[in-house]
Write a protein that binds this DNA or RNA. Structure first.
Length: 424
DNA sequence: TTTTGAGTTGTTCGA
DNA sequence: GTCGAACAACTCAAA
């Protein structure tokens, strides 16, 4: 079911990845995958009628649009005497299930994670596609072709369940054991890279959790926590669908942000990876080159946009959603809101990332910066994080810092005082 | 109802 | 160079 309302905002990277993933799925099913396109509330009942089905099973979608769409499909099916059955969800524990003792959803991560882990889940049962009964594509249904690749500058990860599980095995064989230490190192590749596979449902979190059950290490616990973050944010977005596009903590509506011509110029420099702060620029260029960015660097560039450039977080969030191959509404919007301070369980306002210190700490030899910023490739070691201090000045073609971090940090703290005052 | 302990991801400053 | 405290007060969750 290709839904134009979802495909349009997905951006070329996710559309292309989806097409590749569907081609792999179709091949794995021996060419039996039926793809249709159109408004789900119209097309799903058509297919169900043509197939003579009494029920339609879907994985529940808990996003703001998904909830509305599934309700519309449900009503349309009911109009023809058929039932929509929500079978499972893309989460270990469906949003809305984990509740505080008093009833409302959690707003702090740590107690959520505890309750989430205690809630439990069943490991996925082994399925064998060979035992399923397949029906031929019903007559009268117009099958859509799986779209082709779009013109894309970014280099995408291999798509499909097989690729996802192969990468997961690779992660379990090595990187998982050092995950706690290496997950913050963009120069090292110590992350699982499961986000895109989770995003497109090529692997289920319960599969990952079941495989991790035999790992009792601190590192595996940290990885489980990352999966819990994904579920926490889905839960928070489900409870406050509006938070996809506005401050979850409404007090932050009072935060003064810049939106004028100068702000738009700085935003363009940030998007292009030309801020003059090497680790920020490397991240923004990694995003263009691979439609993906290392998690630590996502935080660094987000902090820079919000606290050094004083731009609205949703400008950055929208840019991420347009380019990221793993762009997930809940994780993306709430990750940004965490940085901005307006989200659930957000960073304390005085926590301002220093882009130079972050670069030196998490890319200590400068390898990550040199990989993505060719202008700095001749600069050896960690000196790459301070190009303005190089003897002979910064390399040709690399911009001077667009702002003075010390001054902008003080400015950011002053702006947060306004939020505090508004709350009082 | 009241109380209590705790809270992803940082930086700076002084000992 | 390393370490701990301060940053600032607030809200959450559970006892």
């Amino acid at each position: 079911m290709l839904d134009p309302a979802l495909l349009r905002p997905a951006g070329p990277a996710r559309r292309t990845y989806l097409a590749r993933s569907l081609r792999r799925l179709d091949a794995a099913l021996g060419g039996r995958l039926l793809v249709v396109r159109g408004d789900p509330a119209r097309v799903v009942p058509e297919v169900a009628a043509a197939a003579g089905a009494a029920t339609v099973h879907v994985a529940a979608d808990f996003g703001p649009y998904g909830v509305r769409r599934d309700r519309a499909v449900e009503e349309a099916l009911a109009g023809t005497g058929r039932t929509l059955v929500r079978t499972g969800s893309p989460y270990a524990v469906a949003p809305g299930r984990v509740r505080t003792a008093a009833g409302p959803p959690y707003r702090v991560f740590t107690p959520f994670r505890r309750a989430w882990a205690e809630h439990g889940w069943r490991a996925p049962a082994a399925t064998d596609a060979g035992t399923l009964r397949w029906c031929a594509a019903p007559d009268g249904v117009r099958a859509a072709a799986i779209p082709g690749d779009e013109d894309l500058a970014a280099d995408l990860p291999a798509a499909g369940e097989h690729a996802a599980l192969a990468r997961w095995r690779e992660f379990l064989d090595g990187p998982v054991h050092r995950y706690g230490d290496n997950r913050d190192r963009p120069d090292l590749g110590g992350t699982s890279r499961m986000s895109v596979h989770l995003k497109f449902g090529e692997v289920h979190p319960r599969t990952l959790l079941a495989d991790l059950a035999s790992h009792r290490s601190e590192a595996a616990e940290t990885y489980r926590s990352e999966l819990a973050w994904r579920e926490f944010y889905a839960d928070v977005l489900h409870a406050d669908p509006e938070s996809a596009r506005r401050n979850h903590n409404r007090a932050f509506d009072a935060l003064p942000v810049e939106t004028g011509p100068r702000a738009r110029g700085l935003f363009a420099a940030w998007q292009a990876g030309r801020t003059g702060f090497p680790v920020v620029d490397a991240g923004m260029r990694e995003l263009r080159a691979h439609a993906w960015m290392h998690n630590r660097v996502r935080m660094i560039v987000a902090s820079f946009l919000v606290k050094d450039l004083h731009l609205p977080w949703w400008w950055g969030a929208r840019h991420f959603m347009r380019l990221l191959v793993d762009g997930d509404l809940a994780s993306n919007q709430h990750g940004w809101q965490w940085t901005a301070g307006s989200g659930t369980d957000a960073a304390p306002y005085f926590r301002v990332f220093d882009p130079v210190a972050q670069g030196e700490r998490f890319d200590p030899d400068g390898d990550y910066v040199r990989r993505f910023v060719p202008e700095l490739r001749a600069v050896p070691g960690r000196a790459v994080h301070r190009p303005w201090e190089l003897p002979g000045g910064p390399p040709a073609g690399y911009p001077a810092p667009v702002v003075d971090h010390g001054a902008e940090r003080r400015d950011a703290l002053a702006r947060y005082e306004v939020v505090k005052a508004a709350r009082a």
